[in-house]
Design a protein around this nucleic acid. Structure first.
Lengths: 249, 249
DNA sequence: AGGGCTTATCGTCGCACTGACGATAAAAGG
DNA sequence: CCTTTTATCGTCAGTGCGACGATAAGCCCT
């Protein structure tokens, strides 16, 4: 795979070579709250502390592959949902073992069929993001610089819900408007008017597609079931007008 | 800097170690067009081809430091403006020398005081992004995967202008509404109504602050000079209502 | 069967924002 | 003074949105 000839040149000897890790901000919506997957570290550094799932990239591995592998190792399954790169952090001042570059990934997954724990590393549990990301000046909660990575991931998710169909990644294949609204409310931490949300969600072109089926599991009038409109990728800014989160003042 | 003890553990021997580069998508607005800084490569691979400025991270260097150093080496100056991380690419399938991880940065700089070329590597020139990023199915223009990185950077810039004061990073300290509008028109590639833009820009709270001075250099009525409102960081989504780019329908 | 409860869905109204575009202000150059 | 040019201010109709009323369609209970 690695050619060394006059045509391609070679990596200069002065170039730094860095160990690279991937960390995953895995988010889901359970019991009406936005929750993040954290693992309890079994080995130093930060043994016994909570951390985002992740680990070192192995030789020959793609970053995405490494992220999926670490997630599978620590949660026992490859969940459905949407994964995208968040950004990179480091390499200095974030790992006591020395310079380590990490590439963070953001996973948005439906809560159905998600395992609670398992794997060989340590216990993996879902915790509400407020517990893992204190907004006030409380001390750090997660190991390494994972507090900041989590905050960046949550903010990315909150922002992307406004102008992308990404919220559907938290839902099953088919879902009701109320379930979709619960996703927005959980991620944004706000309450939304059911009637206005219904209007906006169904009126936005290229967002939802009715399946014709209904869901009568809960109390009250059965709800129409929808799926993501065909051709709409979970990412990509296609929501016009956007679904803006309510303002403060 | 690098402690090795029972408390911190050490990087596992199985971890991959990768050479890391930084690449910079440096954008500016000159002659009413969005332009990107490209260098002509002097050494293999891709010798003679155009590429984004960038290079290998040196030992002990921060990614941001490396980005600033490469930019200084290849353009001869540290320009003002706003720099933020774009994302990471690789490490496979993007460099014929082997696996190389690159972290791309986005720089938005005013055109005033920007050098044309210089440095020890090769000539650095500003070229309109349409020439360096063919929207149609034309072949690749830049070396490595820099076509994609450039496209991602331009899209990031276009999106951020909508909800952040980032457009002011293309301007000098003080600027007129017309200059700011020219930035939006160049970045978005559209024409904007001068009267409506003036209303939206001046009415958006937390965006602009009048300086009281005027600029009478051009023809016509002298324009009020504005600066970025105090406390507003160039990034950060603070524009409400956002300045949305015109739609296609 | 009918009344009450719950949730889903549809409608209405006023306000804010937008785009299209007219009107005025303030300079330079003839 | 008049024309040209650009900046800035106003007007008006269409659209989207938040607040909230009204109706639909299930369930459970008696």
């Amino acid at each position: 795979m690695q050619k060394r000839s006059e045509d391609t040149g070679s990596v200069p000897a002065t170039a730094a070579t860095l160990p690279v890790t991937v960390d995953i901000v895995a988010l889901t919506v359970r019991s009406g709250r936005l929750q993040v997957l954290v693992v309890e570290r079994g080995i130093p550094p930060f043994a016994g502390r909570s951390a985002l799932p992740g680990g070192f990239v192995l030789p020959g591995e793609t970053l995405e592959t490494a992220a999926a592998r670490e997630l599978a190792e620590e949660t026992g399954i490859v969940p459905p949902g949407h994964m995208e790169q968040l950004r990179s952090y480091g390499p200095y001042g974030r790992d006591p073992r020395g310079p380590v570059l990490t590439v963070a990934y953001l996973l948005l997954a439906p809560s159905s069929g998600l395992p609670q724990a398992g794997g060989d590393t340590a216990d993996a549990t879902w915790v509400p993001v407020e517990e893992a990301a204190p907004a006030d000046g409380g001390g750090p909660v997660l190991a390494f610089d994972h507090d900041r990575i989590l905050a960046d991931g949550v903010e990315r998710a909150r922002a992307k819900l406004e102008y992308s169909p990404l919220a559907t990644s938290f839902c099953r294949e088919e879902f009701t408007i109320a379930e979709l609204r619960a996703v927005y409310e959980a991620v944004w931490g706000t309450r939304l008017d059911a009637r206005n949300f219904h209007r906006k969600a169904t009126d936005t072109p290229g967002f939802l597609e009715p399946t014709g089926r209904t869901d009568a599991s809960g109390p009250g009038r059965p709800a129409e079931l929808y799926r993501l409109a065909p051709g709409a990728r979970p990412s990509a800014a296609v929501l016009h007008p956007p679904l803006l989160r309510p303002r403060r003042p």
